[in-house]
Design a protein around this nucleic acid. Sequence first.
RNA 1: GCGGGCGUAGCCGAACCGGCAUAGGCGCCGGACUUAGGAUCCGGUGGGUCUCAGACCCGCUGUGGGUUCGAAUCCCACCGCCCGCACCA
Length: 911
Amino acid sequence: MEHVYDHQEIERKWQARWAEQHTFRALDPGDEGFDPSQPKVYVLDMFPYPSGEGLHVGHPIGYIGSDIFSRYMRMRGANVLHPMGFDSFGLPAEQYAVETGVHPRITTERNIANYVRQLKAIGLSYDWDREIATTDPDYYRWTQWIFLRLFGSWFDREADAARPIDELMAALEAGERDADGVSWSALDEKARRRFIDGQRLAYLDEVMVNWCPALGTVLANEEVTRDGRSDRGDHPVYRRPLRQWMLRITAYADRLIDDLALVDWPESVKAMQRNWIGRSDGARIDFPIAGSSTRIDVFTTRPDTVFGATYMVLAPEHHLVAELTAEQWPEDTREAWTGGAADPASAVERYLVEAARKSERERQAEVKQKTGVFTGSFCVNPVNDEPIPIFVADYVLMGYGTGAIMAVPGQDQRDWEFAEQFDLAIIRTVQPPSDFEGDAYLGEGPAINSDFLDGLDVEQAKASIIEWLEAEGFGGAIVSYKLRDWLFSRQRYWGEPIPILHGPDGEMRPVDDLPLLLPEVDDFRPASSDDENAEPVPSLSKAPDEWRFVEVDGVRFERELNTMPQWAGSCWYYLRFIDPRNDVRLVGEGVERYWMDPRGVDLYVGGVEHAVLHLLYARFWHKVLYDLGHVSSAEPFGRLFNQGLIMAHAYRDGRGVYVPADKVEERDGAFWYDGQQVEQSYGRMGKSKKNGVNPDEFFAKHGVDALRLYEMFMGPLGDSKPWTTRDVVGVVRFLHRLWRNLVDPDSGGLLVSDVSPDPDLAVLLHRTIKAVTADMVGLRFNTAVARLFELNNALVGLDAVPREVAEAFILLLAPIAPHICEELWERMGGEGGLAHVPWPEYDEDLAVEEMVVMIVQVDGKVRDRLEVPVDISEEDARAAALDSEKVAGHLEGEPSRVIVRPPNLVNIVSR
RNA sequence: GCGGGCGUAGCCGAACCGGCAUAGGCGCCGGACUUAGGAUCCGGUGGGUCUCAGACCCGCUGUGGGUUCGAAUCCCACCGCCCGCACCA
């Protein structure tokens, strides 16, 4: 028994050979050996952040799936680009640096080396010559370059596209455009600059941010917990305005929605993106203030209900709050409206202080209990001149619509609740059905109490009132979005420096000499404080003065000290893989067109957690680059696939402490660890739950091919499913069985001969080729593996496997379990490895049996099975079925009908 | 509340178009090999009945309806679960 399957030696041998021979190098047009007649396929994984913990077996499932597809497409002859790199800027390395003083660059390099080792151990067929890291200056040089394109562009609404800002300036100077209604020639230099800077796709603006003094940085909304504390470290987070870099993603809102029609993505991801962008069509209505030129502009999706507007609400941050706060309470002010204050100013003041103290999360947690206060002022309903009291309440958000609403309690549940609480009038303007029992009525119905709208249905009433508003100058149809511009600056060290110089007078200049390297600092600690009023201080303010200050034309400029968020590098990395060493361009034009035109990346595999942010940001950048002529496809990722998570059971003892999952035993329907009963739970695999499976141990025991097979065989690639160590033995047996079927254990010689397969085996082989081929394209690797199991089982006990069968089998399995297949292929005389050996073809005639089983049903129940020729005629099938004795026993009298579907089925209807 | 998706055996799952429900794997049962085996190999595995190497019958895809000769598949209602968003006017 010398010649058994030794996975370790085989893996070492073939992984070394792939590396040596650059087996998976992707050839570009013009490269030696490049075949322009073949189609191109760009297969991309979402590149990882190289964390210090390395990979566990749950991580690579998507990589294995995309690798199988890549290997399959190579065998199909396609030119395959399948690269890997690292999204290596980010907080953990910086945090680690704060704790240990080790420079993030060192940590990052170390972690990347470990990741590369682990990924290579899985046998993934990346073109490692194209490896990139977002922290590499040769890479982030181009991230900075793209930022400068954003800075140097504006969004032309008429063209619905970004254009270089020089073209805007030329048009202004030529008098073809004006600056928001003001003639260009009427503006001084500073005003002109302010206007231009306000038009850029990358611009500075004062916005509300999540400020965490303890961490010394602003945080993205996703980094703040529901109770208004920092996700990392659980520190308090405050809302405050701050001047920050913003990217004008909102200009692309409609294109980001519309172009989802161009891509083959999961419907759920498209839905999430649409939802995030949150387009809603409605109207703006301006409510005049009596005796003033001021108007309150509101956004509503239900302009048809305007006759039912019984009060107004401004968000606490609304710019008109101060102006509309009256000196004294009007006579008919109710007690519930005042908050118990002596005058409107103090009531509003007190309310604003409270509202500001609350985080957005806290605000949302108070959905049940509405709060608010009367300003003492009224506006006028333009449709009927009724006075309407104006309130300030934080259930209206400044960030959506206009930050002010007309409240229509009759048709809005939130307004209803507020109205009940504050004793405000409720007027229904849509007639609910007679059996309606709820509060606010949101459904269809004829308009009532609405003057000239009465009797119209909702859609007609909307159209009618919008026409009226436009005619009378009180507003009109508008569109509102939930999407906001992208807050792009961070006060962190470990990110791309923003390449801008600030001069006196607010002048900004781009840094053209890229890359702008991160300066060295002694201390990576962010400026931390427990004072909520502390000013945010970027880490780069600790850079030496030589870096911070630059003299340009005799004037002292200061460098921008904020860095970019982690999303920046991942917004365009798929482009750099195409041309990773180009030092004159982001990506060469010819190769970019070859790999990206017309649908972009052909298969993009990654986790659904990136459904919105990464994928939306990347699409935005891509569209800007497209508008400016740097890329040739409208969308970056033509086909997206989300792999499912590998889940695992975890176990906790009586104290709630996790115990090692691999040491837990099941007995009598309960789970036991070390003599005591433990409780089972289910969730993501992870170190803290002690339910992770170490890949190194797995490889040592069963091998990489077993891991790849197992993870693909568990179930559909897109589903989340539980890791069950017990089940692994199935694929291990499969591999040993395969080896035994082809290799003589005594001599090590091949059990393969040049005989033809018998007809049954030939049919099975060709059916398997057909099925596996279809599964490869559809990424249904679980069923592909099942088919290969069947074929393998059919070879058991043969004295010799027909060569034709053995070769095809190895080729079919090769993308999934490449190591054992390379070894067997070589032993069978194949030369040069099998990465580019043509995929087996099936013969449709051979995939069909001559005789098949036809089922005979009586009233839909199977009563007999008959062996019939595949090409049986309808008449013969009917006759054979009616001839069946078993059928006769279930028939009384003449059948009323006979359905014949040769050669599969005959259904006899007795009734 | 809104949006997306799912429910098949003891477990993971298969079944592109409506046509033999449960392929493949695990587990379990039996056998072989063996000093032994939780290793490996071979066979069986929805339930029931009988005259038990076989035959016959029945049931079955979360629940209840509908369409159809025929439904896991299509339609309606309900129940349960997962994911995302959520005071978005």
